[in-house]
Design a protein around this nucleic acid. Sequence first.
DNA 1: CATTTTATTGTAAGTTTCTTTCACTAAAAT
DNA 2: ATTTTAGTGAAAGAAACTTACAATAAAATG
Lengths: 282, 282
Amino acid sequence: MKLINRIEQALTTLSKSEKKVAEQVLLDPQKAYQSSIATLAKASSVSEPTVNRFCRTMQCKGFPDFKLQLAQSLVAGTPYFTGSVGLEDSTEEFTNKLFDATLMSINDTRKTIDLNLINRVVDTLAQAKKILIYGLGSSGAVAIDAENRFFRLGTPTIVYDDVLKQRMAAAAAQTGDVLLIYSYTGRTIPIIEAAQMARDSGATIIGITCNQSPLANICHLVINVSNDREDTDIYTPMTSRIVHLTITDILATGVMLKRGPAFQQHLKRIKESLKQTRMPKA
Amino acid sequence: MKLINRIEQALTTLSKSEKKVAEQVLLDPQKAYQSSIATLAKASSVSEPTVNRFCRTMQCKGFPDFKLQLAQSLVAGTPYFTGSVGLEDSTEEFTNKLFDATLMSINDTRKTIDLNLINRVVDTLAQAKKILIYGLGSSGAVAIDAENRFFRLGTPTIVYDDVLKQRMAAAAAQTGDVLLIYSYTGRTIPIIEAAQMARDSGATIIGITCNQSPLANICHLVINVSNDREDTDIYTPMTSRIVHLTITDILATGVMLKRGPAFQQHLKRIKESLKQTRMPKA
DNA sequence: CATTTTATTGTAAGTTTCTTTCACTAAAAT
DNA sequence: ATTTTAGTGAAAGAAACTTACAATAAAATG
């Protein structure tokens, strides 16, 4: 956890003087990491050793280390997850929490993403005869979004967000077809069944789902988006949606780049096709 | 620009000894900001004052300030926008660019979001007799996603991603109905027309779109998501999608919180309704 | 080419900042 | 009431950083 959050959490357990320091730090963290220990001690009306002890309580090696960690935890744009949204939250609070949770999950994905895997998935998609995109529930919206990105790339692309159509299309799938399946849990039975049917039909199955899930076991390639973070039960559906979209962007961009320079014309034509539906700019 | 980049850039212009320091820092920046000036001086085979002067050359107040800035510039997940995706990009490069662009746009939104406006929109949605959600193209997927979030909140919610249905529903709208319209540009003619029709019917129009667009003029309330950043033409459709989703999260969460504690049971029942579609965890 | 000037670097001293020690006080336990 | 424990700050000590200055090297000038 980030230092600034550790301080917030520790507030209740700290001794009287150390609490003064903590409050002073939280009051203006930017100022705190720019001060010397003497300045901070004075501002908090405690002695310098108390500040030093406070730093150690906060699991820092000393005051300089404390300043460093504090500075890091305050970098603009770095989320500092403040826990779950609660009924008592003000608009500002829950908004911040949602932004933080979103940023965190994107960062987590970035850290854990396997570029070799991405390459293989992009290759597979680029060579597909047909791309079938599957999703149910909120993943249905993600699937539709993915179709919107992929159909521009020259390969026939269809999205199915309906259980029955998914089964039928899976049964009709052929070798060379690629199934792109979005599922947060990887445990939704209808999707798992459809995936198995498509695999039996000879299609290549790509899952954007949780590793070590029943669905993952059926897939040829799995992009893992498990959410290991504690305390995120409330956020999971929200943030994983966005993570799935980001992964879609990466895959679609990867395929696009594979198509080479000539393909840019094709994309341009697609873009221009919309011109007449738009009102001109003032 | 971030310190670490400034150092990279300055490499050519530095004096012999200062260059040694710079190289040492770039070799292992993590280590550098944890070292004392003496340690770093020794590692770079220069004197302490040289290190100090190097820090000043890098526009820091002194060595401690240098360490602080260096530490900040190395925080994981801090975007440092590396420009547009190009045909020559490696997987790693374009992946990083996409992540950066996404993080940046979320951060931008966070900075500019107007909480009072959010409050008003949440109030409006919470009091709606019926919520109609409109979107076309990629915004269609966003609209479908929004429906998925809002229909749980007790208000009848319908999504229309079809031009004709949008017009018909707009004509049939009534006072007390709320239209939630997603559009990146705010210039898509069919959506503008439908919005005008709904407004004429007495519905309240909320736009998640670009300020100062024709659509925005028709709306009662506009959440602005214009993309001011240069060089983002390629990213805009990708990132604004995600920004729209984030805003949806905020609005849906806001309405949910407005419903109060008793409502949590209702949400729990919705969640449990899915249980039997899931395979149990190992 | 010699000489001056300027820029670069390190030594040593000085200053600030941080840490440790230890004594004192207040609270808790016996 | 007494002992123990935890908490605190003054003062000394240690470490880290900065400054001043001298020495050297490089560049510019005559």
